[in-house]
Write a protein that binds this DNA or RNA. Structure first.
Lengths: 202, 202
DNA sequence: GTCTATATTAGGATAGAC
DNA sequence: GTCTATCCTAATATAGAC
């Protein structure tokens, strides 16, 4: 593995856990098994190194959207694919959401650049939902609310992990990991129930 | 207004927006219209000043739980009261959730202290849900999932505000604020639909 | 390319006058 | 209690040898 890849791997680990402000160049150097000066040799500044990590991280999230949309004809197909793709990603990178949200709140100008670079297929998803509402497949709901609801149910538990672990599960690790295992289907079913047309209306 | 209150007000504003690491004592002093030395005279260290702000902030959240539980006999009463109480609080303090979550992720040991000091009535809420499930008032759902779902739907949009504003509303402020106005009832109805017993099962 | 040693600066904290 | 001036340390960044 090249030194540059090595640094990027170490930087990703440290930045994701600590965020830009709390991350230390020294810690990244240690993690990569090199020294500080070499970090600067490869990436000049902390800011530039961070930039790389941040946009890579956001791209991973974007791929959950595009990938799930690709092979889905109906909304429920998309929903199931998306929930599981996203949860699979977060399983491997649990710090990802907090990292992204923290940095976007810290530097609000970054969101503009991000929006221009990373085209998330939001309007396609909106259209998919709107069509199913028109066809009477699902209840009348504004696509924006439904999209926000889906993402909230998936992502929030990762951002609030310490609180949930402590205040809801009293630090009981087993209960908590059981909760996580069932979470994907729970979300899918919860949403499907919330948007289905009541049977006795026919 | 006393100098001490003045400082606390300024500190709250700066800490909530910036978080501990990005907050600057200088900025707090400016905001309070005094100088840095006086901050240290009143609160010795940045850490101690922060401590005060943080526990006050968490207490506000706790009160949304306890307050809503107080006068609710059924789950749907609690749900409606809680959603609106919490949203009312976040309307006034939109940075509150990101602040709390960021700090709990930064310093994981803090959660222990917090748990011992601030008794959130979680078991009472769990019991309320479990009872309604037993009585066949709502569908079979694990209380932990339902509680997490409720909080996710309320809180996440505030944490992800920049992303939602940009990627879902294309920076259109009017669309975004219309979304926020309808959000409370949307959440309540979404959850009630997801947990109701289907009519044709009777 | 990689290291050691050093410069620079930002920012929290303190001393001491009033 | 409030200020100005100063200290001190941590952390980013660079110079220069190998």
């Amino acid at each position: 593995m090249s030194t540059e890849e090595n640094i990027l791997l170490a930087a990703r680990k440290v930045f994701l856990q600590k965020g830009f402000m709390s991350a230390r160049m020294q810690e990244i150097a240690d993690e990569a098994g090199i020294n500080k000066a070499l970090l600067h040799y490869y990436f000049r500044t902390k800011e530039k190194l961070f930039e790389q990590i941040f946009s890579d991280a956001f791209q991973l999230i974007k791929q959950s959207f595009t990938g799930s949309l690709l092979n889905s004809l109906t909304f429920s197909e998309f929903l199931r694919a998306f929930v599981h793709a996203y949860l699979h990603l977060l399983d491997q990178m649990p710090y990802l959401p907090q990292f992204i949200l923290q940095e976007l709140n810290r530097d609000s100008s970054r969101i503009i650049t991000l929006f221009e670079q990373q085209k998330v297929p939001m309007s396609a998803i909106k259209k998919l939902i709107a069509t199913e509402v028109e066809n009477g497949e699902i209840i009348a709901i504004k696509p924006e609310h439904l999209i926000v609801n889906i993402i909230s149910l998936i992502v929030f538990p990762f951002v609030a992990r310490p609180i949930i672990k402590t205040f809801i599960f009293n630090q009981n690790i087993e209960d908590y990991s059981r909760f996580n295992e069932g979470r994907g289907e729970e979300i899918v079913q919860f949403i499907l129930r919330a948007i289905r047309i009541p049977k006795n209306m026919i």
